[in-house]
Simulated scan of single mutants.
Amino acid sequence: MARSLLSATAKDLEPLLREVAGAVGVPVLGVVSDGQTSIRRAVERALPGVPHQLCQFHFLREAAHPVFEADRHAKVRLKAEVRGVRPIERALEGQDDTAAEVARGYCAAVRSAITDDGRPPLAASGLRLKARLEAVADSLDRVREKGAARRRSRICAN
């Protein structure tokens, strides 16, 4: 049953809930909703004694809210630490050697990592950002180690 209502106040929803309960032909044993206050009040008035609960998604979102906020705060701090990408990209403008191309690739990887947002509560974008930035840092460390090893081998060969 659906009906267009002028508003979604408890006063407007109450008669609709009574009508639905009478039309279904079976007892209403429970109501599941997004937890909107007007819906909760309308259920209390129209269906006294019938339990009401949040749908699983909304329940999970509310339960995960403190974790989401901590993750969001961590993401903000991580982003602040890698804000220096643009000056590096500017310094590389006009350069077309291999090192400049590699550096631009790393800048693009960092940019991509900081612009990816997840959908709470199922995605912790701060944790994902941390993992992606660690992957970029690990790759840079490997490149640095290879460069140092090459320099050592050239020194030893001379």
Results as ranks from 00 to 15, higher is better:
residue 87 P to E: 11
residue 69 E to C: 07
residue 158 N to A: 06
residue 110 V to T: 10
residue 75 K to T: 01
residue 70 A to F: 00
residue 76 V to F: 13
residue 127 L to M: 12
residue 135 A to P: 04
residue 114 I to E: 11
residue 85 V to T: 12
residue 99 A to D: 05
residue 8 A to W: 00
residue 56 Q to Y: 06
residue 98 T to K: 12
residue 78 L to Y: 10
residue 7 S to Y: 03
residue 154 R to T: 08
residue 132 R to F: 00
residue 96 D to T: 14
residue 158 N to H: 10
residue 118 G to V: 09
residue 69 E to T: 09
residue 36 Q to G: 14
residue 154 R to I: 03
residue 149 A to E: 14
residue 142 R to M: 09
residue 127 L to T: 12
residue 112 S to Y: 11
residue 98 T to E: 12
residue 111 R to V: 02
residue 29 L to Q: 10
residue 29 L to P: 00
residue 33 S to R: 01
residue 13 L to Y: 06
residue 98 T to Y: 02
residue 67 V to H: 14
residue 110 V to E: 02
residue 150 R to V: 01
residue 92 L to T: 12
residue 92 L to S: 10
residue 55 C to Y: 05
residue 71 D to F: 06
residue 116 D to H: 13
residue 138 D to Y: 05
residue 43 V to E: 00
residue 121 P to F: 04
residue 107 C to T: 04
residue 82 V to Y: 14
residue 152 R to H: 12
residue 130 K to V: 02
residue 6 L to C: 09
residue 153 S to N: 11
residue 102 V to W: 11
residue 96 D to G: 14
residue 30 G to A: 14
residue 89 E to H: 05
residue 122 L to F: 08
residue 70 A to L: 12
residue 130 K to C: 06
residue 94 G to T: 10
residue 107 C to D: 04
residue 7 S to I: 02
residue 133 L to C: 06
residue 66 P to N: 07
residue 56 Q to D: 10
residue 42 A to Q: 03
residue 147 G to M: 08
residue 25 G to N: 12
residue 34 D to T: 04
residue 61 R to M: 05
residue 30 G to I: 00
residue 106 Y to R: 13
residue 38 S to Q: 08
residue 103 A to V: 08
residue 36 Q to A: 15
residue 83 R to I: 07
residue 117 D to G: 03
residue 101 E to M: 12
residue 101 E to Y: 05
residue 25 G to R: 11
residue 70 A to Q: 11
residue 116 D to W: 06
residue 91 A to G: 15
residue 47 L to W: 08
residue 68 F to G: 06
